[in-house]
Amino acid sequence: MDYFEELNKDYRFKEGFHTCINCGTCTAVCPAAEFYKYDPRKIVSIVQTRDNGKIESLLKSDTIWYCGECMSCVTRCPRKNGPGLVIMALRDLSIRLGFFTESEKGRQIYPLTKVLNGNVLNYGYCVHPATFAYKDHPESGPVFEWALDHKEQVYARLGANYRGKGPGALRKIPQEDLDELKAIYDVTGGTERLELVEKHSRAKAKEMGMTMEEYAEYTFTHCSTGHFNNE
C-alpha cells in the first residue's frame, strides 16, 4: 500500500498538507511539543518525503498520538498547512491498518473508543455523569466527588433535567433518537470502526497475556517513562 496516496484520500490531509518549508513555527507554538518528545515539523517533513517505510514507522509510533488537536499550528503556519490535520489523517490510517496497537499511546484508542462511543450511543452525549467515576478522575476534586455522590439532587438543584423527559441539560435522550445515532454509525463506518478497534485490541491483549478488562485498565492508566522532554 502506498501510504501517502492513502493519506491523500483524507479530506483533512487535503486541507492540512501543502508544501512544508520546515520553518518550525508549528513546533514553536505547539502545547504538545513543549512537554512531549514531539515535533510536528518533523512529522510533516517525514510525510513529505513520501517514503513508505518512514511513514509506516510513524503510523506504528507513539509520536503521532502526542498531539492534543488544539490546532494552534493551523493559525500560525505561513504556508496554510495544518499539522494537526495531518496528524488526524495519520491516526485514522493507523487505526484502519491496525498499527495503533504497536505503540503504548496508540493502544489508548481502545479505552477511548469504548467510553466515548458507549456514552454517545447510550446517553446521546460524549461525556455523562453515569460513566464519569471519581476513581478515574480524582483531579475533579472533592467537590465533584460530593456532586457525583448526590447527582440527582445536585443536578436538580442546578436546574438540569437529569434523566428526565423533555428538553434540558442531562435529559434522557428518547430511544428513537439513540436508534438514529446507531443507524448513523452503521451507515457511515462508525460501527465498523468500533469493531475494528475491538478486534485489533483483543489480539494485542492476548499477545500481552491480559484479559480485556486488564487491557482496558492498563492502557488507560499506564505511562512508561521516556515520553516527556525532561525524561
Binding site: 479530506y11 462511543n117 454517545v120 460524549c126
Partner: peptide, 15 residues
Amino acid sequence: TTCGGIAYHSDTIPQ
C-alpha cells in the same frame, strides 16, 4: 444530541 466532536477529536469515529 452531541455533535460527536469529542469522539471525533479523540480519533474514535470516522469523519
